[in-house]
Simulated scan of single mutants.
Amino acid sequence: MSELRFEDVTVRYGRTLTAVDGADLLVPSGQVVGLVGESGSGKSTLARAAVGLADIAGGRILLDGVPLTDRRPLQMVFQDPYSSLDPRMTIGDSIAEAMPRADRRRGEVARLLELVELDADRASAYPGALSGGQRQRVAIARALAGRPEVLIADEITSALDVSIQGTVLNLVRTLQRELRLSMLFISHNLAVVRYVSDIVAVMYLGRIVEVGPAPDVLANPQHPYTKELLAAAPRRGSTALPPLDESLRLVADAEPADPHHPPAGCRFHPRCPVGPLIRTDREHCLTLDPTTDADRRLHHAACHHAGGALRAVGQNQSLLKEDSQ
């Protein structure tokens, strides 16, 4: 088990797009951090930076306090199980390729296949003979073959049928507990993150806007974007809802900002139900960056009004999202 830390990490693509902007995040030893946010928030870029697939323009990535080098004891499971395996290689060869010791490959391949609940005789099969869920199990086995100190799972269920997603999530949770892996689990679905994570971190337009123990963040979210994600998550027993304030509807239906030209001040303010578009006395949200003093707020929330003001509108925001579904 090892601790993975991102310190003020910035990743840029070209001259105009800053995909990750000064991100600070800790993946404690033996725990699962669920990183959640909508498409384009920078989640996958942060993961790719950790495994060396994206260069960082600033900050540091540390493993047990030591900066990562070219030989990184991290492994990543990618989103698409159909493109992550070489169709010309057998399953056994794909898994064995990642192993550090060549003299025990056959037995180790069989052990890893059984670990991900596949028959050992699948080692001679090619990816084309497997379903999407089976391929993703193979991808997990291949990642474990590298004996990682930290495992990064990037949207590993989003390309799978709903009927298969649950079995893969159960497998991931079981493996993490049995092997005591440190894990960064990335998803756009807060319901999925809630199921597997010890800690929840929320990312928006390249920045971490809230982070804390999963039960605390989910029970008492401090950032309005976290509230929005929670309201959009599937839930049981929904009932009819009363009419909604039209001004809240306008900000909730607003499109995310252009990541090439993020808003000044609070990046969420064009969509914020407690921000300057709703409350004219909060013009400071247009110019003052709330990430600069986030450490003094509960869950390190990057919101000038985290706390009572958010709780006061939390019910309206939840009703708004449920009504729009």
Rank of each mutant, 00 (worst) to 15 (best):
R105P: 00
L250I: 06
E210F: 01
E228N: 10
F78E: 03
P215D: 12
Q317V: 14
V11Q: 08
R282M: 12
V9E: 07
A139Q: 06
G314W: 10
L35T: 01
L230P: 13
R15M: 14
R135H: 03
V66P: 11
L62P: 11
D119I: 09
G265L: 10
N170C: 02
I61N: 07
A143S: 09
R60Q: 12
Y195L: 00
D216F: 11
V20I: 08
V20P: 11
I61G: 04
T239L: 10
H300S: 14
Q176A: 06
L175E: 03
A49K: 03
D281R: 13
A240H: 14
A141K: 10
E38S: 12
D103C: 00
L248M: 09
G65T: 05
D295H: 09
V209Q: 06
G237W: 02
D103H: 00
D21H: 01
E117A: 14
R88M: 15
M89V: 09
N189S: 08
L286W: 08
D216V: 08
S83I: 13
I208Y: 02
R147I: 06
A159S: 13
R311L: 06
G58R: 05
Q176K: 07
D295E: 05
D216I: 02
P127I: 08
T280N: 15
E178Y: 08
T16A: 13
R5N: 08
R147L: 05
S41V: 14
D121C: 14
P67T: 10
A219I: 09
A302Y: 03
Q317E: 11
V33P: 00
N189M: 02
R297E: 06
S2H: 11
D323F: 15
A254Y: 15
R104H: 07
E97C: 13
I278P: 15
D295S: 08
L26M: 09
D64R: 08
S44G: 07
V36Y: 00
E210W: 06
P256N: 14
D245K: 12
P234Q: 11
P127Y: 05
E283V: 07
L85G: 10
Y13W: 04
Q176T: 03
N170A: 01
V162K: 09
A264V: 00
D8I: 03
D253R: 11
T18Q: 07
Q176Y: 03
K227E: 12
A123P: 01
G206N: 04
M183D: 00
D216H: 02
M76I: 13
D119M: 03
E255P: 06
T280I: 14
T18C: 10
D295L: 07
L63G: 03
P127E: 09
L218E: 01
D64F: 01
R194F: 00
T291D: 04
Y225K: 14
S131G: 11
T16D: 13
A145P: 05
V11N: 01
P213C: 15
E114D: 14
D8E: 05
G34W: 00
T90G: 04
D198Y: 01
R311T: 14
L26N: 08
R60A: 15
P215F: 01
G92L: 06
Q222W: 11
D154S: 11
N316C: 03
